Amino acid sequence: MHSSNDNSDPVVVVLAAGQGQRFRASGAQTGKLQAQLHGRSVLEHTLAAVAASGLGAVLVENSPLWRSEGMGHSIARGVALSPDASGWLILPGDLPAISPQSLRAVAQALQALGGVVRPQIQGQWGHPVGFSAAWKDQLQQLTGDSGAQSVVRAAQTQNQLQAVVLQDWGALADTDTLADLARVAERWDQRPTAR
Rank of each mutant, 00 (worst) to 15 (best):
154 A>Q: 14
109 A>V: 01
43 L>K: 02
125 W>E: 11
155 A>I: 06
128 P>S: 02
37 L>N: 08
135 W>A: 04
32 K>E: 13
134 A>D: 15
145 D>S: 15
152 V>G: 02
91 L>I: 01
73 H>G: 07
73 H>A: 08
94 D>V: 02
28 A>I: 04
24 R>C: 08
19 Q>G: 15
111 Q>M: 14
66 W>L: 05
116 V>F: 06
115 G>W: 01
67 R>H: 13
154 A>T: 14
44 E>T: 04
69 E>G: 12
60 V>Q: 07
121 I>A: 01
99 S>E: 03
149 Q>V: 13
52 A>Q: 15
133 A>N: 06
45 H>V: 01
76 A>N: 08
91 L>F: 02
60 V>I: 15
32 K>V: 04
131 F>N: 01
35 A>F: 10
123 G>N: 03
98 I>V: 15
65 L>N: 13
118 R>M: 12
80 A>K: 15
143 T>A: 11
56 G>F: 05
25 A>Q: 13
24 R>G: 05
36 Q>R: 14
38 H>A: 13
72 G>V: 07
77 R>G: 04
138 Q>Y: 07
85 A>L: 06
129 V>S: 03
63 S>I: 03
142 L>E: 00
89 L>T: 07
42 V>W: 06
31 G>N: 15
115 G>A: 06
39 G>K: 07
31 G>R: 15
56 G>P: 05
126 G>I: 01
154 A>V: 04
38 H>N: 14
28 A>V: 00
92 P>T: 05
97 A>V: 03
51 A>E: 15
74 S>K: 07
25 A>L: 09
83 P>E: 06
124 Q>F: 12
54 G>K: 12
145 D>K: 10
82 S>G: 11
110 L>A: 09
54 G>Y: 09
123 G>R: 06
145 D>R: 08
64 P>G: 05
25 A>F: 00
142 L>Y: 04
37 L>M: 05
71 M>Y: 03
75 I>R: 07
142 L>M: 08
109 A>N: 04
100 P>F: 09
127 H>E: 13
123 G>C: 10
83 P>M: 09
130 G>P: 11
99 S>T: 12
105 A>F: 02
51 A>L: 06
62 N>A: 09
32 K>G: 09
125 W>Y: 12
27 G>C: 11
114 G>Y: 04
122 Q>K: 06
121 I>E: 01
97 A>Y: 01
77 R>H: 12
156 Q>E: 11
60 V>P: 00
84 D>H: 14
89 L>Q: 02
32 K>W: 07
59 L>A: 06
85 A>M: 10
92 P>N: 15
28 A>D: 08
69 E>W: 04
61 E>G: 08
59 L>E: 12
77 R>M: 14
129 V>H: 00
61 E>S: 13
39 G>C: 05
56 G>C: 02
80 A>L: 12
41 S>D: 03
119 P>A: 10
